[in-house]
Nucleic acid binder design. Sequence first.
RNA 1: GGGUGAUUAGCUCAGUUGGUUUAGAGCAUUUGCCUUACAAGCAAAAGGUCAUUAGUUCAAAUCUAAUAUCACCCA
Length: 849
Amino acid sequence: MNIKNLKKIKNYNFKKLNKKIYKKWILNKYFNSNYNKNKKSFYLLLPPPNITGDLHIGHILNFTIIDILARIKRMKGYNVCWIPGTDHASIATEIKVIKELKKNGININDLTKKEFNKILLNWSKKYNNIIIDQLKSIGCSCDWNRLQFTMDKNTYKSVINVFIYLYKKGMIYKKNRIVNWDIYAKTTISDEEIIYKNKVNYLYYIKYFTEDKKDFLVIATTRPETIFGDTAVCINPTDKRYKKIINSKKKLIVPIINRIIPIITDKSVDKNIGTGCLKITPAHSNEDFNIYKKHKINIINIFNNNGTLNNNCLNYSGLDRFIVRKKIYIKLKKLGFLVKKKKILSKIGFSERTNTIIEKKLSLQWFLKMKKFIKPALKEIKSKKIVFYPKKKYDNLFYKWIKNIKDWNISRQLNWGHKIPVYYYNNKFVVAKNLNSAIKIIKKKNNNINIYSIKKEKDVLDTWFSSWILPISVFNGINNPNNIDFNYYYPIDVLVTGNDILFFWVLRMIMFSTFLIKKKPFKRVYFTGIIRDKIKNKISKSLGNYKNLYYLLNKYGADGLRVGILWNNHEYDFIFNDKLCIRGRNFINKIWNSFKLVININNFNIINKNKIQYKLIIKWFNNILYYNIYKLNILLNNYKIYKSFILVYDLFKKKFCSIYLEFIKNKNNKINKFVKKKTFKFFYILLKILHPYAPFITEYIWNILKNKEDITISSWPIISSKKFNKKVIKKFNNTFSFIKYLNTIKFNKKKKNIIFIYKSTENKFRKNIYFSLVYKLSLIDKIKFKTKFSIKQKYLFFFYKKYKFYLLKKNIFVKNVNVKIYKKINFYKKFLLKIKKKFFIYINIYYCY
RNA sequence: GGGUGAUUAGCUCAGUUGGUUUAGAGCAUUUGCCUUACAAGCAAAAGGUCAUUAGUUCAAAUCUAAUAUCACCCA
C-alpha cells in the first residue's frame, strides 16, 4: 500500500483486513507444528467448546489467553502445538436439538432413531463450522491440521479401547443402584450436573396407625406421594419417645394403600429432623436404599421414566408426581390422617440441562470403580508438580473431592454419544470392540448361539468419559502409545480453563493420566474467573444471556474485543459489558494513529543539530522501555496475563504516545537523524510486545514498515537487567512528577517564571531533577539558587517532597495556590492528635504512680 | 452446616515482601481546545473516614483478630 494514501485512512479497517491477514498466516503454515527434536515443544489444548451453539464471551476470554501464550512462546522459538477441537456434549446437544425440533413443530417420538441421528449429525457439522470460523476470526493460532471432534473415528476408537481396558481390569460393572433421573431427558445424570436451589416447600405430618389401630406414629415428609413406595418406618434406637412402640414389635399400616410395614431401628436416623420417624422408600432415596440393604425389607419402584406414577400406585398411576402430591394431601386430610402442614425452606435438586426437579430412582446402570484412581492422583497432587495459576490453595479441595469420590455412573439413556461396547445374548453379555469380535467371543463360549439374537447395548457413555482422556487421545496416544508426536508433546504445558470445571474435567484428567500412563496430564493449570452478565448470572449457552459474537466482532474488531476483555482482572469473576470493548477499540485506534505519526516522521527533514532535551528524552525512553520489557517478561514467566497487558498498555499509551511522541513531534517537520532512527527502533519493539494481545493490526503495520516480513514469526525481545539503569529511571520519574506538580500552580503566562531555591540544596536538586526537561515541559523558564529570601513581600513558598522552593508573588494567581496543601495540613493535624492521644494515656499512667 | 474469596471514587476495577508519589486507571461528570497522528483525541478539574472496630508497629489500604455484608463451591 502507498504510504501517502494511508495518511488519509482514519481508522484501521478490521472488517476488510483481518480475514486476509489470517489467510496469510494459514498459507505460510505458521501455526502448524511437527515433530522437531531440535526445538522445545509447547503443547496447548483448546478446551473443546460444546457444539450446542456458537461461542460466547466466556470462550473468547479463555481462548484469547491461550492465544497470547501461544504467540509469545512461538516468538520465543518454541515449537508451539495448539490443538483445537469441539465436544459432542451428548446430553446438552440432544436436549438442545429436541427443543429446537419442538419449536418447529416436530416431536421426536415421530422420528425413527436413524432420522434423529441424522439430524444430530447435521447439527454437529453446522455448529462445528461456526465454531471453527469464530475461532479463526478472533485470531486463534491453532494447528488446524490437528482439528479434533470427540465423535471422530480416532477418538471413538480411543473411548471404546479405554472402556474395554477398564472392563478387563474389573473396574467397570453393571448394577442396580439409586441414580439421579432427569424426567425430561429420560436419562441418568451425574451428581455434578445437579444444581441445588432454595425453594419454599411443605412438610406434611402424617399418622401411621398400628395394625390394631390402638396406637399411631406421626411421620414428617416433604413427599407424601411416595407413600406408595413405603416398605418400613425407621427410628433411631436411642430415641426414648418411641421406646414403647418399638418394643411392642407392632406393625404399621400405610394410609390409603393399607400396606402393612414393619418398624425398624437404625442409628443413621436423625432424632431432630421432623418427628424422628422416617418413612423408608428404598427405591427413591440413597439413605433409604442403604437402610434397605441392611434390614432386608421390601423395595417398590413407584415412578415411570417420565415422572408419572406407575402401576404400583392404585388409581393414581399415570398421573404426574406433583398432581399426585396435591391429591394425596386432600385425601389424607379427608380421611383424617393428616396432622399438619408446615412451611419450610429446603434445597431441591434441579437438572442443569433441563431445569426439571431430579428424581432419585433405582436403576440398572454401568458404573466405573473410582478407588484405583485415587492413589496415583493423590501422589501427583501431593508432590505439587502441577502448578496452579493464579496461585491459590486447591489442594484441600482436591483432597476433599477425592476422599468423597463415589463410583462414576457412566451410562446415559441417550442417542447422541459413544455407544457402550457391550453385546447381549441369552441374558448374558460380552464386551467387545465391534459386532464381529463380539460374535467370535460368544461363539467360543456357546457355539449354538443364533447370531441375530445378539443385541448391542443401547446406552451411550457420559460426555466426560471422552473428555478425561482427551490430552492423550488427541495424539492417538491411547490406540498407539509409542507414536512420536505423543512422546514429543505430552504433557500439556499450560491448560487454560474456567474454575467451574475443576472437578468435571481437571481432576478427572489427572486421575486418568496418572492411572493409565503414570504421567501427569499437564504441567500447569491457568484458571480464569467466570464472566457474568449485568445481574451477575454466569454467561452460558443454556441461559443465552450474551450477545452474538459476530455482532461484537463487527462492531469492535477482533483486536478490540481481545484487548477489551483483557481489561478486567480475569483471575476473579467479572461483569462483562460493551464498554470494555469500546475501550479496547479506542486503544487499537491509538496504535493505528501512532503508526500514522511514525510514518509522518519518516518524511521529516533531517537536521544534524541535536538538542539536549531530545538526548534526554531518548535516554529516558530507552531506559523505561527496556525496564518495562524486563518486568513484562517476569510477569509472563509467572503467568500474570492481566498485569502484563496493563503494563504493555501503560508503556505504549502513557509513556510512548503521551510523552515520547508528543515530545518529538513538531510543527517545523524537522528531526534529528539519531532521534528518527531511535523512534523507529522503539516502535518496532513496541509492536512486537503488542502483537500477542492485538495480533491483526500489529501484523498489518509490520508488513508495511518491514516490507512484507511477518511479525508472527519475529523474535520476542528479551532484555537483560544491564540494559537499563534504575537510578536514571528514578531521576526521570522525579522530574516528571515535579513537572506535574509545577503544572498545578496557576502561573501568569505573560511573565518570565523563575524558581528560586536555597543554595544549600543545589547539589541534591541537580542530582534528582533534569532541569532541561523542566524548562521544556513546564511554564518555568529558569531555576536559580539563592542564599537569602525576603519571604513576606516578594515570594511565596511551596513544598515539593523535601524541597522548598520559591516563586515570585506577582507571577502567580495566589487564590488558586494548591488546595492540596491544605489537605496535607489536615492530615498532619490528625496525625498530631493521634500522638497527643498516646501521650495523654502515658501521662495518665504516670499520674497513677 | 463446612470451605474459599471479596468489600478502595457515581460505576468497573488496579494497588508488588508494610515506607519509594499527595491511594492509581478506564468509563461517567465539569471546564478549555477541531492544534499537521488520533474528538474513538489532547490539556485540566472535581470526586476516597481504603466496609466497621480493636490490636501489632516509628509507620497499616497492605499484617492479626472480631463484626457486618456479598459471591462462589461442597453437603
